[in-house]
């Protein structure tokens, strides 16, 4: 989606969301699996996925398929995070045709932290800093060639900090 004017784009997204809702009611018999695909194509903010409370629900809402653990997904996360408000986590992968990467923290109030869309020509390697309420499993999902792969690691948090 072209985002020359972000203000305009935000407004348009709201209108599109409204239109999408109406369309979904109208086409109630659409297969559920079609919704995430449409969302990806429109580069729409995955509002529902960010509200989910478990890894499984996030994966279902965001991708509509199951993830398979892969040793080709390399997550770099600390063993122990002294400050849960700022936990540096990065991921890289040797998988080809990566289209998106997502970060999940199982024990956070909302499990999904971030989803990154990776167009062709962008390397499948992302680093960011996340909040962790308490000790939790951290999972990264990598969507590559239409399949979903994952890697998980427990990160111990000594001082929780979902606040920042």
């Amino acid at each position: 989606m072209n985002k020359i004017d972000v203000g305009f784009s935000a407004t348009r997204r709201l209108i599109l969301q409204g239109a999408g809702a109406v369309a979904l009611i109208g086409l109630g018999n659409l297969p559920f699996g079609l919704t995430p695909a449409l969302a990806a194509a429109n580069d729409k903010y995955p509002e529902e996925a960010f509200k989910q409370k478990s890894d499984a629900d996030v994966i279902k809402t965001l991708y509509g398929k199951t993830a398979e653990p892969s040793d080709k997904v390399k997550m770099d996360a600390p063993e122990i995070a002294e400050n849960g408000a700022v936990v540096p986590i990065s991921v890289s992968t040797s998988l080809a045709d990566v289209t998106s990467v997502a970060f999940l923290v199982s024990e956070n109030p909302n499990v999904l932290i971030a989803k990154y869309n990776i167009p062709a020509g962008t390397l499948p390697s992302v680093a960011n800093r996340i909040k962790m309420a308490k000790t939790s499993n951290v999972t990264v999902l990598v969507e590559a060639g239409g399949k979903l792969y994952s890697a998980s690691k427990e990160v111990k948090v000594t001082v929780g900090g979902c606040g920042g």
């Binding site: 989606m1 072209n2 985002k3 580069d43 903010y45 995955p46 960010f50 408000a85 700022v86 936990v87 990065s90 923290v105 956070n108 909302n110 999904l112 932290i113 971030a114 989803k115 990154y116 869309n117 990776i118 167009p119 020509g121 962008t122 390397l123 390697s125 992302v126 680093a127 960011n128 800093r129 996340i130 909040k131 979902c162 920042g164």
Partner: peptide
């Protein structure tokens, strides 16, 4: 979003679980 030459090279969807004063790192070709 990050755009180079009118083309989207990286796009993030974030929730409230990203740390205050967010930092992100990536790389692209071209």
């Amino acid at each position: 979003t990050f755009e180079h030459d009118g083309k989207n090279v990286f796009a993030a969807d974030w929730g409230g679980g990203i740390s205050k004063d967010p930092y992100v790192k990536f790389a692209f070709k071209g």
